[in-house]
Design a protein around this nucleic acid. Structure first.
Length: 548
RNA sequence: GGUCCCAUCGUCUAAUGGUUAGGACACCACCCUUUCACGGUGGCGAUACGAGUUCGAAUCUCGUUGGGAUCACCA
């Protein structure tokens, strides 16, 4: 039995068979095939959505295909249910792939299987071929040995890695290798690199542009001792077979680009276009770092769900981060679908951007500002059902009431009020409309008033209650406010007051403030007249007369 | 340490050798106004530093400084 038979004793498909099965895709000219290839670690990073969004746009904008491939070759890190999380997150953000595993766990597409753990034989077939051609070899170095090599390189000031004379197993004879396999010594398969470190290769990245690197001369591991491929090898095999035209991935892969290109050429395959995207970062002290799974809650997509950021808002924010001209486009096309925005990889910046909550909130307020009251209700309610059941119940039993609260300064208004940036804001926004959640004591009330107001409010309240007509129009209501103001020595408007403050006890805004605080408990609220109409006369009078 | 990369307002960025260095978010002021908000107008605010090339540099070159990525049987 030869060395190769000892490594692969079981029958493997031939590479010809495999190639035949994965026929080139019949796609129109210019159509791009992209993928999102996450590891099922049980964590969905916002950067994953970012990269998926970019890949999805590039594919679908060109009439191509966007697919999902699960990179589960690291069995140690794998977490159960992780694939579901990936599929459902993509689905939720409107990024459902054309091929790959969907939310219900069913696989679609003709280029599968789309989980690397199910493609073991495919990788092995190609590794076997490499072995037969003498382009790969088994390596028996232990971790300790590797560590020793590294130390040796360090003390000599030499470059780190498994290459040249440091590549101990490279020169092993077939007999020696067989003997070790027979002895049950664990091994990996390494690619025998022919690259010359002193030779520079140039790569052309769609985002980063032309880059020069020393060629790869490292004999990297292509098959681990668990007989699964490493990322490097799986990437090359899969993206070839699955017909990826544009590999869009995080720029932490940039340094291994010479290796990947070398591998593509070794296999005799067309090298895809590469686009490396810079990570979303965060300020940590004086330096920037990637959004961290451990330290930053906002790194996880679940955070946005919990906070109640709408998916559109997150998408628009991300789009904005990727192509800063998106916001100009949005201004020009306020009601257009974001899918109509011409996304461009070239417009992406090649250093990472800092995540900015303030901007996210702003984008988000705009997004919600575009929604109808019904939409706001439905969306907020859907969120509340999972994240705030009390709120959900309240909304359900007061459907029309809450809907009309949402409609204050919304539909039919020139400029929509924008005070909700996420669904978790809703609770606070509607709280004071409910008697059981509204409480205001005299002290709290008076503490928000000026000295003059503290003296005058009982009279204001008396006058208000006296003339209150629940059916009055906004103008009538305001007319009465003006009368009350004038009668008590308050200016009719701020201008008048400012011109001669010594002549007045305050201005109309002070008068309104008394009622605003009585009715809402706050000095800030939407249009008071609308609030009163929504609340109804009973509630209004009760609150206005609370301390009289 | 080796390799590679990056550097414009606080943040995201525009300006591909000639602009009063533009916009958005945030902040401030004013206007509108029934407080707040929305909206409108304006303001604050940047080419990291040092040389060089050029009539002219944010832009090209070199250096300095600062920052990032990577150097696994992880992806």
């Amino acid at each position: 039995m030869s060395l190769i038979d000892k490594i692969f004793p079981d029958p493997l498909p031939s590479v010809e068979e495999i190639e035949k099965k994965y026929a080139p895709r019949a796609l129109p000219e210019g159509a791009k095939v992209t993928r999102i290839a996450p590891s099922p670690t049980g964590f969905m990073h916002i950067g994953g959505i970012y990269s998926a969004l970019i890949s999805e746009r590039i594919a679908h904008q060109s009439g191509g295909v966007f697919y999902l491939r699960i990179e589960d070759t690291d069995t140690k890190r794998e977490v159960e249910g992780a694939t579901d999380l990936i599929s459902s997150s993509l689905g939720a953000y409107g990024l459902a792939p054309d091929e790959g595993v969907d939310v219900s766990g069913v696989e679609h597409g003709n280029y599968g299987p789309y989980s690397q753990s199910c493609r073991r034989e495919i990788y092995q077939a190609y590794i076997k071929k490499l072995l037969e051609e003498g382009r790969a070899y088994p390596c028996f170095s232990t971790v300790e040995e590797l560590e020793r090599i590294r130390k040796g390189q360090e003390v000599r000031g030499e470059r780190l890695g498994y290459y040249g004379s440091w590549a101990l197993s490279r020169g092993l004879s077939a007999e020696e290798a067989e003997a070790r396999i027979d002895a049950g010594i664990p091994y990996v398969i390494r690619y025998k690199s022919l690259g010359d470190y002193n030779h520079k290769i140039t790569v052309n990245d769609t985002i980063k542009g032309k880059r020069e690197f020393p060629d790869n001369d490292l004999d990297i591991v292509i098959m681990k001792s668990d007989r699964l491929p490493t990322y490097h090898f799986a990437h090359v095999v899969d993206d070839h077979l699955m017909g990826t035209t544009d590999v869009i991935r995080g720029d932490e892969w940039m340094p291994s680009l010479p290796l990947h290109i070398q591998l593509f050429r070794e296999m005799g395959w067309k090298v895809p276009r590469y686009a490396h995207i810079a990570p979303i970062q965060k300020m940590d002290g004086n330096s920037k770092r990637k959004l961290s799974k451990r330290k930053d809650p906002e790194a996880s997509v679940t955070f946005y769900d919990e906070e109640g950021y709408s998916h559109e808002a997150v998408v628009e924010y991300l789009l904005n981060l990727a192509n800063s001209n998106f916001e100009d486009w949005r201004k020009q096309n306020p009601s257009a679908d974001y899918h109509d925005f011409p996304f461009s990889l070239k417009k992406m910046n090649n250093s990472g951007a800092l995540f900015d909550f303030t901007k996210l909130n702003s984008v988000s307020r705009e997004v919600i500002g575009r929604m109808s009251a019904d939409e706001v209700f439905e969306r907020a309610h859907a969120w509340a059902k999972t994240y705030d059941v009390d709120l959900a119940a309240r909304m359900e039993s007061n459907r029309d009431y809450v809907r009309s609260i949402f409609n204050i300064e919304r539909e039919g208004v020139r400029n929509v009020r924008k005070d909700i940036s996420k669904w978790s804001d809703v609770k606070e926004e509607i709280r004071y409309f409910f008697d059981d959640q509204f409480s205001l004591n005299r002290e709290a009330f008076e503490s928000q008033l000026s000295d003059n107001l503290r003296k005058d409010w009982p009279e204001m309240v008396r006058l208000f209650a006296e003339g209150y007509n629940p059916e009055e129009s906004k103008d009538e209501w305001f007319g009465r406010m003006l009368e009350i103001a004038a009668g008590l020595g308050y200016a009719r408007n701020g201008k008048e007051y400012k011109a001669a403050p010594e002549n007045f006890r305050g201005d109309i805004s002070d008068v309104v403030k008394v009622f605003r605080v009585l009715i809402t408990g706050k000095t800030q609220s939407p249009d008071l007249y609308s609030i009163m109409r929504v609340m109804g006369p009973e509630r209004v009078l009760k609150r206005v007369n609370a301390f009289s």
